[in-house]
Design a protein around this nucleic acid. Sequence first.
DNA 1: GGCACTGATGTCAGTCACTGTCACCCAGTA
DNA 2: TACTGGGTGACAGTGACTGACATCAGTGCC
Lengths: 199, 199
Amino acid sequence: MGRWEPNARGRLEEAALDLYIERGFEQTTVAEIAKRAGLTERTFFRHFADKREVLFGGSGELQERLVDAVTAAPGAATPIDTITAALEAVGTLFADRHEKSQRRQSVISANPELQERELIKLARLSRALADALRHRGVPDPAASLAAEAGITVFRVAFERWIAGTGRPDLTALMRESLDQLKAVTAGQAPSLTSSNPLG
Amino acid sequence: MGRWEPNARGRLEEAALDLYIERGFEQTTVAEIAKRAGLTERTFFRHFADKREVLFGGSGELQERLVDAVTAAPGAATPIDTITAALEAVGTLFADRHEKSQRRQSVISANPELQERELIKLARLSRALADALRHRGVPDPAASLAAEAGITVFRVAFERWIAGTGRPDLTALMRESLDQLKAVTAGQAPSLTSSNPLG
DNA sequence: GGCACTGATGTCAGTCACTGTCACCCAGTA
DNA sequence: TACTGGGTGACAGTGACTGACATCAGTGCC
């Protein structure tokens, strides 16, 4: 046994999410989070750069998986095929976290400050993807645009996955969104033929 | 004549940009900005919601122009054509502000907090564009994806416009980026045939 | 066993972004 | 003249975040 209770970081993450849901993000102080986790405010800031970051600890893993998949794609694959492979690779990452993702997203949706943090995380994902594509020899601006397209598809599909009940299939939603994006940029008039929960 | 020097808001914007460039964003206090503008800290926060917002006063005008252009597009235009028309409509908005845009962007590029704010402004632009498309009868997710595509094109082109010297043509850069995005999503292998300042 | 050394945590004082409240003063208007 | 409204100043907070130093169990080394 260590000198302190183990997993201080995890306890802080859990306490923060619970309190953000109970009272709202702005109405929760860092001192309260630390107290619920059995720690001090100072220790919170040793584990997380700021009050928002405690909700975004998982973004590193997502980025790693995406970049690895881009690197592992066949050399002959086009940029959009490479991005597609990367999306497939992370489709299962959230499979058993649907409820927690919904809780977390409900907090983010209620707070512009948290949305800002989420957006910059996605932007960093996009940059990492673009870097990986450039490393494969894809020139700019094709690399940036393909990466942006991939993140857009991920985000649109993720929103629909969160909005769904039961256990929706994130991978299938990403495939649908990608097809829709291809259709839109090809200049097609929009259709309602694909499944669309909002009608 | 009024009771005070006129244009308090504009003086605060100018003082803030100057100080952010001179000392950096984090090293500048709101009290310093207010003092340089001949006002008090409290008055700064009556004009701007926070220390970052003072750099983003112009985003409202941009959004208005984009949405108006979408609304004014011919009824038969496809979503991507509508977005193209909107981008054309704002191409001239920055024509005579190249140097100031560069100064402002240099500050934003140096500060993640400011990048967060910029990203959420762009996200709001995207949402407004999507709303305008839906108002024209474009269903989801085509409306969201077309709007995202448009904002991506704007951002990529704007970055290149900022990086350029002399008086680069923002409209031309947007046309190029749009063509590249179409090519990428159509699955084409990337080419180097279009002008590309980064080689 | 003793001892230095490490690393996660606690304690405390401090800065600064941001807010609520009230007073002030000039403008327009009846 | 009286009255009202809006932009401002003054001032006292709250809370996020930081720097510096103390504490003390574990670890390895003699």
